[in-house]
Design a protein around this nucleic acid. Structure first.
Length: 858
RNA sequence: GCGGACGUGGCGAAAUGGUAGACGCAGCAGACUUAAAAUCUGCUCUCCGACAGGAGGUGCCGGUUCGAGUCCGGCCGUCCGCACCA
C-alpha cells in the first residue's frame, strides 16, 4: 500500500515554485490586483503551530485569488524592533540586532518550509536603516505639518528600569518586569496628533463593510464621541495668588445644571496646582493622589476623595446660587476640561461624593409617573429620561429638549457653548529604549528643537552599546548624543528617545508596494496596490495597530505621500490555537512532549511524578503548551498541518490543537493519494470528453462534483474554510463509493479527482501539485485556473421535498425540480401515511414552498 | 457599571425562517492478519420498539409564524472589549 511521500514532494515543489518565480508580484496596471496581507510577526524566536494559522489562511486567499486570475501581492516582513530583543541582550549578552537577525533567519526558514506563496523579493525588516530612514523622514514631515509635537504629559514611570511603560505593561500598579510600584510622572513626550482625525476615523468606520462588526465597535468606543457643553463658572469673592476664574467645565448633561451642588477639579488642573502653591494641605492631598498608579486597578480600588478649597463658584444661570469648589481624585485632567459640575441626583459618582461630604441632592429630572412633590433620590441616582422640574425655564421639557434649550441659552448669554468631546487622546510615541527607530531631532540650547536635515538621514543606532545599567542605553552612550546643532553649529544634544514600535508597523503595508524604492514608496505603485484587499491578524490589534495605521494613512495623505484614507478594505481576525496546559505538582509548567500517559493517568516523562492537567489555553511559550512546528512538519508534512488548521473550527473561533485531529487529516491525505495512484476504474487520458450516456448514479456523482465547485468557491469567498474542507471531503467520500468500474466510471472519477486536486490547491499546494501531475498534467496548480461549475449540472433536476403535518416532518417526496404547487400538494395528499394522519379529512390550510417543503395544517 | 459576542451529541462542529447533528475526532462491533500496525465495512442524540415506526430533543421561560437552533421579549451562564470619560 503506497503512502504519500510528503518529504520529497514538498521540497521538490518548493524548489520549482522558486525557480519559476511563481509568486513575484509585478506592477501591471492593466490587470485587476488583489493585495493579501497577514500582520507581520515580531521575530521572537521560533514559530510554533499556533503562529501559522493566520499565515495558512492568508496563503489560501492568495492562491485562491491567483487561481481566479488576479494579480496578487502577498508579501512578508518582520516587525523587528522591540523590547524582547533588549531583554535578550541583558539575559544572554547578545546584541539585540544579532539576536533579531538570527530569529528572522530561523522563522523565514520555517515559513518557507510551510510552502507559503510569499513574494520574498519584497521582504523587509523594521530594524533595517533602509526601512527606518523613511520613517524618520515621515516624522519630520509630520513635525512640519503640525501632526507631531512635543509636550509634557503624565506617564507611567518604572523607577527601577528608568523607562516609560505603556498602560498594557502596568499590572496592578506595578511594572510588569521589575514589580516596582509605578509612579506618575510628568515628562516631555513626542506625540502624534491622532485627534486631528477623530471625526474622520470615526465616521469612515461605517464604510469599512468588510471589517468585523466587533472591531468597528471597539474602535468606535475607543474614539468615544460625546455631545455636551462647556460651561463657565465665575468665582465668588477673592481667590488667593494667581488662581483665577472662571472655571470651565464639560458636561454631557447641561439639562441638569439646576441640580448642581459642587464643582470638582482634577488634581492636575492648573487652578488646583496654583492653589496648592499657597495651601500645603492641598499640596499634600494632590501628592497623595499622584502616589496612586494610573492603572485601572489602582483607580478602581481608590475611594472617591475630595479637598474643599473653601472657594465658591457662581451658578451661571442664577447669580444668587453658589456651589463649593472641590479638588477631587476621580476627575481626569485628560478628558474634557479637567473640571466637572456635580449633579448628585442624576449621576451616581456625584451622588456618592455628595453623600460623603454632605452636599445637597437636588432632583431636576422627574421620572415618568412620579409626583414632583414627593420624589426623592436615595442611594441610586436617576439617570434615565424624564421631565425637567425645579429648573426654571426648562420645566416640563424632556431630557433631549432641555439639552437643546439650555444649549441655546448658554450660547446666547455667553456662559458656555455646545461641543463635541472625544475620548481619543494623542499618541505618545517616545520610548526610553535602544532597540527602536531614533527620533531625528537635535536639542539646541539656543535654537530649541531642530530637525535633523534630510541629507543627514538616517540617524542610525550606534552598534556599540551596553546594557549593564538601567535606563536608556542611547543616553548612556559616551559620544552618540553629542552633536552640533545643524542650525547654529553650537554643541547640541541628540534626542535619545526612540519611536514606539507601533510607528514601524503603521506603514509597512505601503513599503511592500515598492519595497526597493529609494523613497518610502512609489506613489503610483502604492495607489495601484492599495488598499490591502484582505488583511488578516489577531483581534488583539483591534484598536492599537489598526487605529494607528488608519491614522498614519491619513497623515501621510495630508503630507502629500498619496491620496488614501483607509488602508485595509477587508479585515479578518482569526481565532487562536489553543492547547491543554500541564503543570507539575510544584506548579512548574510542562511541555506536552514531556508528559506521558499511561493507564493510570498522566506523568512527567522519566520521573513518574504525577501531572496536573490544566485549562485549555492559547499556545504560549510562557505556559509551555506549545507544539513545535518542526516536529509536526517532520511527521506529517506542511500540507497536512495546513489542512488541519483550516478544517477543525471556523477560522474566527479558537482551535484546539490535538494530535488525533492531525492524524485524521494524515489518513485522509493517504486515502486520496491511493484513490489517485490506484484508481477504482481505469482513468481515460487527460482531456478525454465524458460520455453523455453515463448511468444515473454516475450522473448524480457528476452533479455532486459541480455542486461542490460552486459551494467551495462560495465558502472560500466568505472565509468559511472549515465548511469548504467538509464539502471537499464529502466529495472524496462519494468518489470512493464510485458506482461502477467501466470507462464511464473512469471518466467521471477523473473529473472528480481533478476537481478535488484543484479545490485543495489553495489549502494543500504541494499535495495538489503532486496529484495534478500524477493525473497526467504538466501545468502547475500555482498557475492553473480555478474550476468553474457547470450551471446545468450544479442544479438538481430532482429535489426532495419534506412533507409536514402541523409543522412536523412526516414524509418526504422525490419530485422533479420546479414541480407546480398543486402537483406537490396532490402528491403529498396521495401519500398513505399522510391520509392516515389526516383521518381522511381535507386539511384546513396547505403551505407549499416549491422545491422545499409542504406543510398540511389539520 | 457600559458595550458586544456566544450557548446545538462524549468532543470540534454543520444547518438563505423550511428534513437538526453534514464533515471530522473519540468510541463500539466486525473483516484482513499468527499477532500488531496500517487499511476496509457497519453502528454511534435520548427514550419506547425485534422491525416497521413512534415520542422527545438546539441553556431556561414566554411570544411571533403554517413552520423557530435561526426572529422578538425576559431570565441564567460563558467569553471579550471599555471603564471614576462627567
Amino acid at each position: 500500500m503506497s503512502r504519500y511521500n510528503f518529504r520529497e514532494t514538498e521540497t521538490k515543489w518548493q524548489r520549482r515554485w522558486a525557480d519559476l518565480g511563481s509568486f513575484a508580484a509585478r506592477h501591471e496596471p492593466s490587470r485587476p490586483k488583489y493585495y493579501v496581507l497577514e500582520m507581520f510577526p515580531y521575530p521572537s524566536g521560533k514559530l510554533h503551530v499556533g503562529h501559522v494559522r493566520n499565515y495558512t489562511m492568508g496563503d489560501l486567499v492568495a492562491r485562491y485569488r491567483r487561481a481566479l486570475g488576479f494579480n496578487v501581492l502577498h508579501p512578508m516582513g518582520w516587525d523587528a524592533f522591540g523590547l524582547p530583543a533588549e531583554n535578550a541582550a541583558i539575559a544572554e549578552h547578545v546584541h539585540p540586532g544579532a539576536w533579531t537577525r538570527e530569529n528572522i533567519a530561523t522563522m523565514r526558514g520555517q515559513l518557507q518550509r510551510m510552502g507559503f506563496s510569499y513574494d520574498w523579493s519584497r521582504e523587509l525588516a523594521a530594524c533595517d536603516p533602509d526601512y527606518y530612514k523613511h520613517e524618520q523622514k515621515m516624522f519630520l514631515d509630520f513635525l512640519a505639518a503640525g501632526l507631531a509635537y512635543r509636550r509634557e504629559s503624565w506617564v507611567n514611570w518604572d523607577p527601577v528600569d528608568h523607562t516609560v511603560l505603556a498602560n498594557e505593561q502596568v499590572i496592578d500598579g506595578h511594572g510588569w518586569r521589575t514589580g516596582a510600584p509605578v509612579e506618575k510622572r510628568l515628562l516631555p513626550q513626542w506625540c502624534l496628533r491622532i485627534t486631528a482625525f477623530s471625526d474622520s476615523l470615526l465616521d469612515s468606520l461605517r464604510t469599512l463593510d468588510r471589517w468585523p462588526e466587533r472591531v468597528r465597535l471597539m474602535q468606535e468606543n475607543w474614539i468615544g464621541r460625546s455631545e455636551g457643553a462647556r460651561v463657565k463658572f465665575a468665582l465668588a469673592g477673592k481667590t488667593p495668588g494667581n488662581a483665577n476664574g472662571p472655571i470651565e467645565i464639560f458636561t454631557t448633561r447641561p439639562d441638569t445644571l439646576y441640580g448642581a451642588s459642587f464643582l470638582a477639579l482634577s488634581p492636575h488642573h492648573p487652578f488646583a496646582q496654583a492653589l496648592a502653591r499657597k495651601d500645603p494641605a492641598l499640596a499634600e492631598f494632590i501628592a497623595e493622589c499622584d502616589r496612586l498608579g494610573t492603572s485601572e486597578a489602582a483607580i478602581e480600588a481608590a475611594e472617591k476623595r475630595g479637598h474643599n478649597t473653601g472657594i465658591e463658584a457662581i451658578h451661571p444661570l442664577d447669580p444668587n446660587s453658589r456651589v463649593p469648589v472641590y479638588i477631587a481624585n476621580f476627575v481626569l485632567m485628560e478628558y474634557g476640561t479637567g473640571a466637572i459640575f456635580g449633579c448628585p441626583a442624576h449621576d451616581q459618582r456625584d451622588l456618592d461624593f455628595a453623600r460623603k461630604y454632605g452636599l445637597d441632592v437636588i432632583p431636576v429630572v422627574l421620572p415618568p409617573g412620579e409626583d414632583p412633590a414627593t420624589f426623592a433620590v436615595g442611594d441610586t441616582a436617576y439617570v434615565d429620561d424624564g421631565t425637567a422640574f425645579n429648573s426654571d425655564f426648562l420645566d416640563g421639557l424632556s431630557v433631549a429638549d432641555a439639552k437643546r434649550v439650555i444649549g441655546e441659552r448658554l450660547e446666547s448669554t455667553g456662559a458656555g457653548q455646545r461641543t463635541i468631546q472625544f475620548r481619543l487622546r494623542d499618541w505618545g510615541v517616545s520610548r526610553q529604549r535602544y532597540w527602536g527607530c531614533p527620533i531625528p531631532v537635535i536639542h539646541c540650547g539656543d535654537c530649541g528643537i531642530v530637525p535633523v536635515p534630510a541629507a543627514d538621514l538616517p540617524v542610525e543606532l550606534p552598534a556599540d552599546v551596553t546594557f549593564d545599567k538601567p535606563g536608556n542605553p542611547l543616553d548612556h552612550h559616551p559620544t552618540w548624543k553629542h552633536v552640533n546643532c545643524p542650525k547654529c553649529g553650537k554643541l547640541g544634544r541628540r534626542e535619545t528617545d526612540t519611536l514606539d514600535t507601533f510607528f514601524d508597523s503603521s506603514w509597512y503595508f505601503l513599503r511592500f508596494c515598492s519595497a526597493h524604492a529609494p523613497i518610502a514608496f512609489e506613489r503610483d505603485e502604492a495607489e495601484y496596490w492599495m488598499p490591502v484587499d484582505q488583511y488578516i491578524g489577531g483581534i488583539e490589534h483591534a484598536v492599537l495597530h489598526l487605529l494607528y495605521s488608519r491614522f498614519f494613512t491619513r497623515a501621510l495623505s495630508r503630507c502629500g505621500y498619496l491620496d488614501l484614507d483607509e488602508p485595509f478594505a477587508g479585515l479578518f481576525t482569526q481565532g487562536m490555537v489553543c492547547h491543554q496546559t500541564y503543570q507539575s505538582q510544584n506548579g512548574e509548567w510542562l511541555f506536552p512532549e514531556d508528559v506521558s500517559e499511561t493507564g493510570g493517568g498522566k506523568f512527567v516523562d522519566g520521573s513518574g511524578l504525577p501531572v496536573i492537567a490544566g485549562r485549555l489555553e492559547k499556545m504560549s511559550k510562557s505556559k509551555k503548551n506549545v507544539v513545535g512546528l518542526e516536529r509536526i512538519v517532520e511527521t506529517y508534512g506542511a500540507d497536512t498541518a495546513r489542512l488541519y488548521l483550516l478544517s477543525d473550527s471556523p477560522p474566527e473561533r479558537d482551535l484546539e490543537w490535538t494530535e488525533t485531529g492531525i492524524e485524521g487529516i494524515w489518513r485522509y491525505v493517504n486515502r486520496l493519494w491511493r484513490m489517485v495512484t490506484e484508481p477504482a476504474a481505469p482513468l481515460p487520458a487527460p482531456g478525454t470528453a465524458i460520455p453523455n450516456d453515463v448511468s444515473p448514479a454516475l450522473l448524480a456523482l457528476r452533479r455532486q462534483i459541480h455542486k461542490t465547485i460552486a459551494a467551495v468557491s462560495n465558502d472560500l469567498d466568505q472565509f468559511r474554510f472549515n465548511r469548504a474542507v467538509a464539502r471537499i471531503r464529502e466529495l472524496t467520500n462519494a468518489l470512493d463509493d464510485l458506482p461502477g468500474t467501466d470507462a464511464g466510471a473512469g471518466a467521471v472519477l477523473r473529473e472528480g479527482l481533478e476537481t478535488t486536486a484543484l479545490l485543495l490547491g489553495p489549502m494543500m499546494p504541494h499535495f495538489a501539485e503532486e496529484l495534478w501531475q500524477t493525473l497526467g498534467h504538466g501545468i502547475w496548480i500555482a498557475e492553473a485556473k480555478w474550476p468553474v461549475a457547470d450551471a446545468a449540472l450544479a442544479r438538481d433536476d430532482q429535489v426532495t421535498i419534506a412533507v409536514q403535518v402541523n409543522g412536523k416532518l412526516r414524509a418526504t417526496l422525490d419530485l422533479p425540480r420546479d414541480t407546480a404547487k398543486d402537483a406537490i400538494e396532490a402528491a403529498a395528499l396521495g401519500l398513505p401515511q399522510i391520509t392516515r394522519l389526516l383521518d381522511g379529512k381535507p386539511p384546513r390550510k396547505i403551505v407549499v414552498v416549491p422545491n422545499r417543503i409542504v406543510n398540511l395544517v389539520a
